[in-house]
């Protein structure tokens, strides 16, 4: 069996739609998970009672359970307690839930690296906790945490392949469908690898450009 190019071209439109869905789900989940990270890390660092512990429990819970199980729980488990999300939003929710926990740790690491003197100075100037986080702490934390935030985002994109297990026709879902019908595993799996690689490399390049911009004040 050699590499069948016409076969691939025939199925390119469907694969393209799958890739678009992968990008859509991942982009939404990345944005939402970073937001979860910012809020969660703030709660943790500022030691808000109860909320801080809740965030810590959430992180531990997600980090110590498999993503596939979390995904099935969201899709098949939550409807039992009355929360039925559509296929698409089940995917976004599960990925956000998973990546959010890691983003909390990423941002928290960044916040820990901000010199305590800045916090003391902010308090001396009369800034509230919230104002310190918004204007001083988080902007600096994100700068430091950016590589690990990117890391988690890359994992999120790769893990979006799991969503094929609940029937979402994203890139992997489309390709596995074709493999199950036509058995041309080599062609389809090659496309999968190339597809994910290009998405992830694009994201990395974009983040690197962003990082460069953020570093502008510190460059000579």
């Amino acid at each position: 069996m050699e590499f069948d190019v016409p076969y691939l071209i025939r199925h390119l439109p469907a694969l393209g739609r799958g890739l678009a869905l992968t990008i859509q789900v991942s982009a939404l989940a990345i944005v939402l998970s970073v937001f979860v990270g910012l809020v969660g890390a703030s709660l943790r660092v500022m030691r808000f009672p109860v909320l801080s512990q809740a965030a810590a429990a959430y992180v531990e819970f997600i980090r110590n359970t498999p993503l596939l199980v979390q995904l099935f729980f969201v899709f098949f488990g939550l409807p039992t307690v009355g929360l039925t999300l559509s296929l698409f939003w089940s995917g976004v929710f599960a990925l956000t839930l998973w990546a959010g926990a890691f983003q909390i740790e990423n941002v928290r690491g960044g916040l820990a690296s901000v010199s305590p003197g800045l916090n003391e100075a902010a308090r001396a100037l009369g800034l509230s906790k919230g104002q310190y986080l918004r204007f001083v702490g988080l902007p600096l934390a994100v700068r430091v945490g950016l590589p690990s935030i990117l890391n988690t985002s890359v994992s999120l994109i790769k893990n979006s392949a799991y969503l094929s297990a609940i029937g979402l026709q994203e890139l992997t879902g489309v390709a596995f469908d074709r493999i199950a019908i036509d058995f041309r595993a080599f062609e389809m799996l090659s496309v999968l690898l190339a597809g994910y690689l290009s998405v992830v490399l694009t994201l990395s390049a974009a983040v690197r450009a962003f990082e460069y911009r953020l570093q502008a004040p510190f460059r000579r």
Binding site: L87, A165, G173, F176, D177, I179, I181
Partner: peptide, 23 residues
Amino acid sequence: LRGTTQASWFDENMPGLNALRLN
């Protein structure tokens, strides 16, 4: 289910059908 006779049948006979394919 993915890869079943039914999946191919609907693919051919009812294209555009809203199919939820599971494992």
